[in-house]
Design a protein around this nucleic acid. Structure first.
Length: 550
RNA sequence: GGCGCCGUCGCCAAGUGGUAAGGCAGAGGUCUGCAAAACCUCCAUCACCAGUUCGAAUCUGGUCGGCGCCUCCA
């Protein structure tokens, strides 16, 4: 089956065919590195990670380019704040109004590090700012998530000649003009010639022209025009160009770097929904104006992470940083959170809470996903144990049940339909249920099965193997179940301050009591453990414990 | 104001013309010393109104409500 993708550009779901052989060339707009990443960025990277991994799973070669925008007004602004120091007036800005002491402490410590590095290496502060946050991005923030490796991670600062060359082409083709050291894209000229401006975002060019006026003193001809090159103010990072010292405008870097890294036209361009306008609209316009041919075939955009229904963003200050996120749940759980929703839909972030009316507890997205990952691992563990190490007789067949036989086919069917990871997770869950059903069977029931115990084992073996294939395709549940479960228990125990040694001791006491059928004592210990937040599971091979989630 | 998206069971969330996936919570059951876990069963006609159609959650128009973009933004 071919993959169907909902293309934002055509507003249609259509079959995907690569432009070149068996290679998928995909570009995802990366971050502007002026600060730490939040869960919204995480969602973006994990959503596209699933998409890219699925292409690889289907046998495509993947050329995956993820850029860093490391030249930008915000980076310069941050550099200026650092330069002004902790007593600077910038601290009064509205953006910092909600900062608490801890946030200030982190922020100022970070500023110190950057300031000292710049001094030691004699580099421009802005340059050190972006370096610093690229490092944070790659190691602290996304290191733990084991993302599919990008084929290239270009940075604007290392592609200035390409940027300048593209701007020159745009000017040569009559779609750009210089104005007092700046260069602007002439949207009107472009639209008159091609009628293409607004095709991605569905905006009407005429209305855009009517709707906005050029402010007096503005260097642009028309309001929709945007900067390709910005002349440098004193002290700003700057590069020489035919129009004087300056830096690339926003948008142009993605055009230049995608063209260089992937070639144009390429297959897929992605990013957050908020980039559709103006970023991606402008990217298409300037690319096609400069290159003289199509830029990219398929455009896909991920939905936002919202908090209480409102978009999570740096400017609103309602974001959860990735560092905070990692304290709430391990990386794999976050992956589960993201995969539980279709990439284009919003994910409303919520934590377990008590309903205001009544005392009912509503479980949050994170906790539910945590349990789900545990359930998957527990099921795989049961299946492994049931199959055992002994060889299975050759004539054993897989039992006739779709849930066991069609795991891979069903998974692919779901994923082929616009990467519907939510449905994929649902069918995986159904198969997990089936595995548990088989594992729950008594010897007598197993004997009655068509093919008896050997078929039962064969079926479980196949199901476990296939489940690992499809989960692995999305980079889930790759660890050994026992290890993953132990790590998750440790994580929860630590978060709740549970003393594992003490729990183990109480478990031993209880085992003793149970042996003597002292149920009162046994239950007493269970209650004590419950009060600590520990849940017991008595099994045939002894008791186990886990941290209660609520 | 312009453009766009959304409104599906108490909560989360799939589903773009063929008669409502899945998860959480809840109820009942199997199992268990009792529990827990696991499994089984039950639990919605899709904001509202009017159309198109043999047939609509899915298409059209309108109403109400929410959100996003239009300035930086994953």
């Amino acid at each position: 089956m071919t993959i169907q993708i909902n293309n934002v550009l055509t507003r249609q779901k259509s079959p995907f065919t690569p432009l070149e052989d068996n290679t998928v060339r995909i570009y995802v707009c990366g971050v502007t590195v002026y600060g730490r990443c939040h869960v919204g960025h995480l969602r973006c990277y994990l959503s596209f990670d699933a998409i890219v991994r699925y292409f690889a799973y289907k046998g495509y070669n993947v050329a995956y380019c993820r850029n860093f925008t490391d030249i930008d007004d915000k980076i310069i602004a941050r550099a200026k704040e650092i330069e002004a120091g902790p007593e600077g007036e910038w601290r009064q800005a509205a953006a910092y109004a909600d900062y608490d002491d801890a946030q200030w402490q982190t922020r100022l410590a970070e500023d110190d590090v950057i300031r000292n590095r710049a001094k030691a290496d004699d580099r421009h502060l802005a340059e050190v700012v972006s370096d610093y946050f690229i490092d944070i991005f790659s190691n602290d923030d996304f290191g733990p998530f084991d993302l599919f490796p990008a084929t290239s991670e270009p940075r604007v600062s290392q592609n200035i000649p390409e940027v300048i060359a593209l701007i020159e082409q745009i000017i040569d083709n009559g779609y750009g003009y210089e104005s007092c050291g700046d260069v602007y894209f002439d949207v009107a000229a472009y639209h008159e010639k091609t009628g293409q401006y607004g095709k991605l975002s569905g905006r009407d060019f005429k209305q855009m022209m009517d709707g906005a006026r050029v402010a007096p003193g503005d260097k642009k001809r028309n309001a929709p025009d945007f900067a390709l090159w910005k002349s440098a103010a004193t002290g700003d990072p700057a590069w020489p160009s035919p129009w004087g010292d300056g830096r690339p405008g926003w948008h142009i870097e993605c055009s230049a770097m995608s063209h260089k890294e992937l070639g144009t036209p390429f297959d897929i361009h992605g990013g957050g929904k908020d980039l559709i306008f103006p970023h991606h609209e402008n990217e298409i316009a300037q690319s096609e104006a400069g290159l003289g041919h199509a830029f990219c075939n398929t455009w896909i955009h991920n939905g936002f992470v919202t908090v209480d229904g409102v978009k999570m963003s740096k400017s609103l200050g309602n974001f959860i940083s990735i560092q905070e996120a990692l304290k709430m749940a391990p990386p794999e759980v976050w992956r589960m959170v993201v995969l539980g929703t279709h990439y284009a839909s919003p994910i409303d972030f919520s934590r377990t809470r008590k309903e205001t009316e009544g005392d009912e507890t509503v479980r949050g997205t994170i906790d539910i996903a945590f349990d789900r990952v545990e359930y998957f691992y527990e099921t795989l563990k049961r299946a492994d144990e049931a199959v055992g190490a002994d060889p299975i007789s050759d004539d054993a067949t897989v039992l006739a049940d779709e849930r066991g036989q069609a795991i891979i086919d069903t998974f692919e069917k779901m994923m082929d339909d616009d990467f519907n990871t939510a449905r994929a997770m649902a069918v995986i869950g159904e198969s997990m249920k089936y595995v548990n059903e088989l594992c729950d069977m008594k010897a007598k029931q197993i004997k009655k099965l068509d093919g008896g115990k050997e078929s039962w084992r064969r079926t479980l073996q196949k199901a476990a193997t296939d489940l690992r294939v499809v989960l692995g395709a999305l980079n889930l549940c790759k660890a050994k179940p026992e290890e993953a479960l132990a790590a998750m228990r440790d994580f929860s125990a630590k978060a709740r301050g549970i003393d594992a040694a003490k729990v183990e001791q109480l478990m031993l006491d209880r085992a003793e009591a149970r042996k003597e059928k002292d149920w009162a004592r046994s239950d007493e210990i269970r209650d004590a453990l419950a009060a600590m937040g520990v849940e017991l599971r008595d099994g045939v091979g002894g008791s186990d414990w886990k941290v209660a989630r609520n």
